[in-house]
């Protein structure tokens, strides 16, 4: 077993143990952090490994959330169907966006994804009679059951989040070591060379966008199901910037970085809010300090100083 696999399995084990040890408050926080970390891991596939900076991932998260939420709201679908459907909806959207957006690169790619995402947000508002626009709607507690388990129960919620988190973490671990993952890194480092070596760059990027969008969508669907509400604020621009921030803070291009970054940002906000009203000031200063003193994010720092083997 490689050191990396030990690390990742170890993290899962620790999180599992924490389910039974943490006080209620941190227990709830960690469940949230795990789902948001899945979102960030999805983002990291595209940004950290394929080197494509998207400013529109909120649309995939929202596609998953609304794909799940609307089928439950209008057709009473059970979660066992609604959750995969949300993920599929995000995958389909990601495919469509990828086909168009991958004609561009660099900053143009940022803008195109940003614009598509903004259009998606406005579509949610436009169909207000169905979506209830910005207000969103509640997923009734009775509908939030999976395999006979009540997802609104704190322990069930935590474990469901942990299962999703573990699956995605290990999948990312596999991906990075797989041929696809290595080709993506090759494209990130030097697209021309990858092309000359005979790789179909476009197809690999397409795969990365769809995979990344699907994972973000799964996070969105899970978030709605676990925490019980669906809303358009999850489709807004700031919510697209969030995973970028999580990934950059934790360390882009590391498997564990998105989780570390998400937890770091979450508790930074939370603790700053307890100490002072000016929590944005604290968060802003921390981000600036991060760029000055941990240039590749927290795990990037760890990799550079102590653990060059970190995937």
């Amino acid at each position: 077993m490689s050191r990396a696999l030990v690390l990742h399995l170890g993290l899962i084990a620790v999180l599992f143990a924490a389910a039974f040890l943490l006080p209620a408050y941190h227990h709830g926080n960690l469940a949230r952090i795990m789902v948001l970390a899945v979102y960030a891991m999805g983002y990291n596939i595209l940004f950290g490994y394929a080197g494509l900076l998207s400013l529109g991932h909120a649309m995939f998260f929202a596609a998953g959330m609304y794909g799940m939420g609307l089928t439950v709201r209008y057709w009473d679908w059970p979660m066992i169907l609604a959750l995969p459907f949300g993920t599929l909806a995000a995958a389909a959207l990601a495919l469509l966006v990828a086909v168009l957006a991958l004609r561009t690169a660099g900053v143009a790619f940022m803008i195109v994804t940003l614009m598509f995402s903004q259009a998606g947000f406005l579509v949610i508002l436009y169909f207000n009679p169905i979506t209830r626009g910005d207000e969103g709607f509640v997923i009734p507690q009775a509908a939030r059951r999976l395999a006979g388990l009540d997802l609104s129960d704190p322990m069930n919620r935590y474990l469901a989040a942990l299962v999703l988190f573990s699956v995605v973490l290990l999948a990312c671990h596999r991906l990075v070591l797989s041929r696809l993952g290595r080709v993506l890194v090759a494209i990130r480092e030097n697209e021309e060379r990858a092309r000359l070596l005979g790789y179909d760059v476009w197809a690999h990027k397409l795969g990365a966008v769809v995979l990344s969008g699907s994972v973000a969508g799964a996070a969105g669907a899970a978030y709605g199901a676990l925490f019980g509400s669906v809303g358009a604020s999850f489709a807004e621009v700031p919510f697209s910037i969030l995973p970028l921030l999580y990934v950059l803070a934790g360390g882009a291009g590391t498997v564990i970085g998105p989780f570390v970054g998400t937890a770091f940002m979450f508790y930074l906000r939370d603790l700053a809010g307890t100490v002072t009203d000016a929590h944005m000031l604290v968060a802003g200063a921390a981000l600036i300090a991060l760029t000055l003193f941990a240039r590749r994010g927290l795990m990037g720092l760890v990799r550079a100083r102590w653990a060059g083997w970190l995937p």
């Binding site: 030990v6 690390l7 620790v14 408050y25 941190h26 970190l310």
Partner: peptide
């Protein structure tokens, strides 16, 4: 590395707890 990651989470939880307690 596993150990280090553990203590990271643990330390943060403790800090959070202290912060919360101080405010309560």
């Amino acid at each position: 590395m596993t150990k280090s990651a553990t203590s990271k989470v643990g330390r943060r939880a403790v800090l959070a707890g202290l912060g919360a307690a101080a405010a309560m």
